[in-house]
Write a protein that binds this DNA or RNA. Structure first.
Length: 515
RNA sequence: GGGCGUGUAGCUCAAUGGUAGAGCAGUGGCCUUUUAAGCCAUUGGUUGGGGGUUCGAGUCCCUCCACGCUCACCA
């Protein structure tokens, strides 16, 4: 019966796999379950170690025996005739098993010798001890297989030198394979596992910061009948029964601000945005966004909150507000540098865009300065190009860039007495844009005019046109409190705090082309 | 989409246009405190796919695929 159940549909593709399949059949013939249902773990590897060390410290003279049953994946093994050493690893760490044929009996030892491979999960019961060299180990008297690994994992060997430095041999380092088979990367590369723990801590730090500031966490639609809140091409999908096209959201902005109309004073959402655009070291088609909106404040209030929030996250994740990113040391301790976009561009390029109020003139002076310009760009787009090419790469230490051209910011209030600029800032750290914030526009008449303006500006590039969201205008006509809001690219923050130069390293399953 | 680069055994990597190799993993031995264990023997390849040049191609050329870096795009 067992044999029939294990008739393989899958063909081993190489000798190591064929060997393991043979061992699977050998186990079945001996009546041993290769994937049993029940486990009886009493200690994680770390708990077993600390229980033993505690006993050693308490009863130095006559320590009581410490009995444990530990489980884990075999990551190193060494069969020496009638003795078998193995390191097993679980989520906590590793521990060595010391198995003598006298302690486990001939049958179990034969199983170890003939059927056990690196990568298998096993359960081992025994007594804690130290080997001759002092390594804390389990002297095993019971050992069973928990899960047979049919494909070999990449083997990584490590040597700890005298100064505690770990040398690695045969590391699984092929970048593409690490992304395509993230499970294998995580299984063998502890530092990859570490990155995603750091990622979780980052998200949880942002969340707890905002919770403590009185923000309410909300969830708004991912499938939207009208997309908006940013300028990006959307992914389009379809609801069959409603016969309706839907868009995967490109931002949360318009839904969160509806909630301020609904009398929540402060809301935030952490979730996925989708943009149908290019992939790069800092772009993935789906990415994690944090947006938060607060009533009765403006973009200065949001600035203060944001720098405190990111400093808090850095402290929680790395233990310091000073972090290493590539070749730079970044100090996230508030307050951060604040400089207007106009001054920043003037400082880094010598161009004062106020002197060139027409797109043609600005275009010309940019060409003279050797800045490549996008075709048919509006004046605002040109200013933004200057920001991206001239300023952004130089903004290593955290900085707020303030006051943006009005025509590229349809959801922000204008600067009093300056119709060409809006109260908007972007956050730059490590040469990357981290976030974008405004004193939010709450004037429904102005907002409608902006929508129409945007529609006109982009009508000839239909895939970037921003559709008018009538329902959003309707909400705003009920009255929206004055407010400030901000969007933070969570993936980029994680890149900073984990010191990774590409977004793919901090996404568990980054987008890759189909093979 | 453009430019540059990479792709060889399960993993990490070698190989002037001239017989495709090593270490680890695997397989068969020896070994009752090893830890990159060791020793002896040994299996393993459509050199990313396809086409071309050549007496002969992993190597040179063309093309396709994937990945990396970079530029463009991403208000």
């Amino acid at each position: 019966m067992l044999r029939r159940k294990y008739r393989l549909m899958w063909e081993p593709t190489n000798t190591p796999e064929a060997d393991r399949v043979r061992k699977l059949h050998q186990l079945l013939e001996r009546g041993l379950a290769p994937y049993p249902n029940r486990v009886q773990r009493t200690h994680s590897t770390a708990e077993a170690r600390s229980a033993f060390e505690a006993e050693e410290n308490e009863n130095r003279e006559t320590p009581e025996p410490v009995e444990v049953t530990v489980c884990g994946r075999i990551v190193r093994q060494n069969l020496k005739g009638k003795v078998y050493f193995a390191h097993i690893e679980d989520g906590d760490g590793r521990i060595q098993l010391f198995v003598r044929i006298d302690n486990v009996g001939d049958d179990t030892f034969a199983m170890i010798k003939n059927e056990l491979d690196l990568g298998d999960f096993i359960q081992a019961g025994g007594t804690m001890m130290r080997t001759r060299t002092g390594e804390v180990s389990v002297m095993v008297h019971d050992l069973i297989l928990l899960s047979k690994a049919l494909s070999p994992l990449p083997i990584i060997k490590e040597q700890t030198t005298g100064d505690g430095e770990v040398k690695r041999f045969g590391a699984f380092s092929d970048v593409e394979e690490r992304y395509r088979q993230r499970y294998a990367d995580l299984a063998v590369n502890a530092e990859s596992r570490h990155i995603f723990r750091q990622r979780a801590r980052t998200v949880s730090a942002l969340r707890s910061f905002l919770d403590n500031e009185g923000f309410l966490e909300v969830e708004t639609p991912i499938l939207q009948p009208i997309y908006g809140g940013a300028a990006a091409r959307p992914f389009i999908t379809h609801h069959n029964q409603l016969h309706q096209d839907l868009y995967l959201r490109i931002s949360f902005e318009l839904y969160l601000k509806r909630l301020l109309v609904g009398m929540y004073d402060a809301v935030y959402e952490i979730g996925r945005d989708f943009r149908n655009e290019g992939v790069s070291y800092k772009h993935n088609p789906e990415f994690t966004q944090l947006e938060f909106y607060k009533a009765y404040t403006d973009y200065f209030g949001i600035m203060n909150l944001t720098e405190r929030m990111l400093a808090y996250a850095a402290q929680q994740v790395t233990g310091s507000t000073t972090i290493v990113f590539g070749e730079h040391t970044l100090d996230l301790t508030p307050p951060w540098q604040r400089i207007t976009l106009r001054d920043a561009i003037r400082q880094y390029s010598g161009i004062d865009y106020i002197d060139y109020p027409e797109a043609d003139a600005l275009h010309r002076v940019m060409q003279e300065a050797g800045v490549e310009t996008p075709k048919g760009a509006t004046w605002g787009r040109l200013v933004d190009t200057l920001l991206g090419t001239v300023v952004e790469p130089r903004l290593i230490q955290p900085a707020f860039i303030l006051e943006y051209p009005r025509d590229i910011s349809p959801f922000a209030k204008t600067v009093p007495g300056d119709e060409t600029h809006v109260e908007r800032f972007e956050i730059f750290v490590g040469g990357m844009e981290m976030g974008n914030a405004f004193t939010e526009l709450n004037d429904p008449v102005d907002q409608e005019a902006r929508f129409i303006e945007m529609e006109r500006l982009y009508s000839d590039e239909d895939d970037e046109a921003t559709p008018i969201d009538e329902d959003y205008l309707h909400a705003m006509r009920y009255g929206m409190p004055p407010c400030g809001g901000c969007g933070i690219g969570v993936d980029r923050v994680v890149m900073l705090l984990t010191n990774r130069s590409t977004i793919r390293e901090i996404l568990l399953f980054p987008h890759l082309r189909e093979r």
